[in-house]
Nucleic acid binder design. Structure first.
Lengths: 118, 118
DNA sequence: AAGTTATATTTCCTTACGGTAATGTAAATC
DNA sequence: GATTTACATTACCGTAAGGAAATATAACTT
């Protein structure tokens, strides 16, 4: 079963940790698609796809409408934004680290130049 | 075993899909920490932490040095950048979607205003 | 060289994941 | 109202993940 005890961020990252599910997101990125279209695109069984869709929905990465007898699948930005937000926190960190490393390199080169002149 | 058959992006997202591992990354974000320090911080057994570290290392999210008998664990930005890169692709997409939605709303409001004036 | 410290590896267990096949259900069509 | 279409749910299977306990290894200390 879809483990609803795990935190939202874990669910989101877990949902993204599967190539089939990322392919589904890629497929619906520029427009909703029916479940059958998704089944046709990926080489998987229909129940298999439905299961993946459930995981993606539980992670807030997709939404589903009801249009006649089809259930078009839409990309939902909210889930992705949450994951992006978490990573961005570290992005600032590592960019800061790069800046500090650049500064260190500059200082070392300055030292080297000075020593060269002695 | 560490499944080296899965693609790098899946490994990275899977590594991020665990609160303990994210806590480890948070802990070493502003400086390397020894394994024991990480064990002490999280309430987990030492083998458990070593296993998590292996997953993080396999995903390119951490690196390990050898300093005397300790093995300090460093954050590795490369893995995070890859994950961020993937998400960023969709970020552009959904920001585009938001822009289009804004434009639509503007148009609808313009229509409404015009109809109101009739 | 023996003991201690720091960490890795192995073993074992339980639970979750990814997949298929079979069946159920809701809506359109005849 | 019976049938088809589109999809969900159930049941089941194999494999992998997450955890603890026990053991192994590697380096420092005395």
């Amino acid at each position: 079963m879809g483990d609803s005890m795990t935190d939202p961020l874990s669910r989101t990252f877990l949902a993204l940790a599967d190539p089939t599910r990322r392919a589904i997101l890629a497929q619906i990125a520029d427009g909703a698609q029916t479940v059958n279209a998704i089944v046709a695109a990926n080489g998987l069984s229909q129940p298999g796809i439905s299961k993946h869709l459930k995981v993606l929905e539980g992670a807030g990465l997709i939404r589903r409408e009801r249009v006649a007898k089809t259930r078009p699948v839409h990309l939902d930005a909210a889930g992705l934004q949450q994951a992006a937000g978490w990573i961005d926190h570290y992005r600032q960190h590592w960019e800061g680290a790069f800046d500090r490393m650049d500064a260190l390199i500059d200082r070392l080169q300055a030292e080297e130049a000075k020593n060269g002149r002695q």
